[in-house]
Deep mutational scan, measured.
Amino acid sequence: MDALKSAGRALIRSPSLAKQSWGGGGRHRKLPENWTDTRETLLEGMLFSLKYLGMTLVEQPKGEELSAAAIKRIVATAKASGKKLQKVTLKVSPRGIILTDNLTNQLIENVSIYRISYCTADKMHDKVFAYIAQSQHNQSLECHAFLCTKRKMAQAVTLTVAQAFKVAFEFWQVSKEEKEKRDKASQEGGDVLGARQDCTPPLKSLVATGNLLDLEETAKAPLSTVSANTTNMDEVPRPQALSGSSVVWELDDGLDEAFSRLAQSRTNPQVLDTGLTAQDMHYAQCLSPVDWDKPDSSGTEQDDLFSF
């Protein structure tokens, strides 16, 4: 819950932080000083300027060897085509990944977070970031790969997607708890209302004896509580940590079903599988986004697919 609360507080303090972009060759504004600060901008989305290598189908939802083989196929196909790589912007948030063309600003792909089953910074092609997700059109699994400016960037994108998945799962947990509370309150309110109706004398007997209905007592009954809980029953509950912020979080049926399955089948359902080692994760978390744009010590960066 700490990640969720800190993310909400950060967004309320400075929503404009989320509009910064990394990996864009110096076009961005001043960047936060450390990885923790940038992680807090996830709610509205972190932007990464990358190059799209392509996509291939895979048979399993996750796995280092599986993704490595898929990336190898994608890279080989991209090299064989001889075409310049498409420059894209990857927007990562707890909602998922939005992929747009840098030149036309046209939407290429919009992947809900619950469809993503794996992401990684490839070991062999260490400047490549990739994720595996279920197609929104059918049940097939797709591996999408992107060329980053350097290994640090690939690791940073991988960690960002993993963190977005974690925050999304926490949102789901909060929403589920809130819905259970509202359902319980609604049920209790309905029981109270039913009890009051059972003990209320029939209207005919009131008229016969000349008694008047006590409207004041009726007004004191917990009807307002019942209506408050039943009027918006169809509205999706939102985490309290975000009250007053500009973010509107809505959970669709697909996300609810997917996270429910994860909660039942996995020990740590909030953790998205990645190909990063503990050492890689520690190294990337210690980086400032400013470091992502620094040239690798191995030599001059080449803006070309064939540089790796």
Rank of each mutant, 00 (worst) to 15 (best):
P222A: 11
A195T: 13
K79M: 04
E44T: 08
A241T: 10
L212F: 04
H282L: 14
S175Q: 05
D214F: 04
E59I: 14
S14D: 13
F48D: 01
R115W: 13
T200G: 15
A221L: 02
G63Y: 06
Q136W: 05
W292R: 12
L213G: 08
Q197S: 08
A284S: 07
A3D: 10
I74S: 00
R95S: 05
Q279K: 10
K181E: 13
S135P: 15
I71F: 00
F259P: 05
K30P: 10
M55D: 08
G45M: 08
K220N: 12
T120V: 03
A80I: 08
Q240G: 04
C143F: 14
L223V: 15
V248F: 15
F169D: 03
V167S: 10
H125M: 00
H125N: 00
K150E: 15
D293K: 05
L47F: 09
A185R: 15
T200C: 03
E44C: 06
K184S: 14
K62S: 06
L50E: 11
K5R: 12
K204R: 08
D2T: 03
A18D: 11
R261M: 12
K123R: 11
R196T: 09
H137V: 13
Q240P: 12
G54T: 00
Q139D: 13
G82L: 14
A164Q: 02
D303F: 04
E180W: 09
P61D: 01
L53F: 01
D273L: 05
D256P: 03
A208T: 02
E44L: 15
D293Q: 10
Q155W: 13
A121E: 13
T274R: 02
F169M: 02
Q302K: 07
E40P: 14
N105G: 04
T104K: 13
Q279F: 02
T277K: 03
K79N: 00
A195Q: 14
G210I: 06
A258S: 03
E217R: 12
A80R: 12
S186K: 02
T160M: 15
G244L: 07
S227R: 14
F306G: 03
L206C: 06
K5V: 11
L159H: 13
A219C: 09
T274G: 02
M124G: 06
A228T: 10
D122S: 00
E188P: 03
T200Q: 14
L90N: 00
E177C: 14
K30T: 15
S21I: 01
R266C: 01
K220E: 15
M233W: 03
A162N: 02
D198V: 05
R196K: 11
E301F: 06
K204W: 05
V248N: 14
S117I: 01
V271R: 13
S227V: 10
D253M: 04
A195M: 05
D253Y: 04
G96F: 02
V88Q: 09
V248L: 09
P237V: 07
G63Q: 01
G210L: 01
S265T: 02
L50Y: 01
A162L: 10
R182E: 09
L66A: 05
R196E: 10
L103H: 04
L193V: 04
V248Y: 04
S298C: 03
R196S: 11
L47E: 14
T77N: 14
T89H: 12
Q187L: 03
V271M: 08
F129M: 07
N105S: 14
G275I: 03
S205C: 04
D280N: 07
Q155Y: 08
S135A: 11
P201R: 05
D234F: 04
C286Y: 13
D253S: 05
C199Q: 15
N211K: 14
Y131N: 00
G194C: 11
E170C: 04
L262W: 02
Q163C: 14
C199L: 06
A145T: 01
G8S: 09
V157P: 00
G25C: 13
D252M: 05
D191K: 02
R29Y: 10
L103E: 09
S14I: 00
A195D: 04
M281K: 11
F165W: 04
L57H: 06
A284P: 11
G96D: 15
N268P: 05
T41S: 05
Y52F: 03
Q139I: 08
T77G: 06
V236C: 11
S117P: 05
I71V: 09
S224D: 07
L43N: 15
M46S: 12
F169A: 02
P239H: 12
Q106E: 07
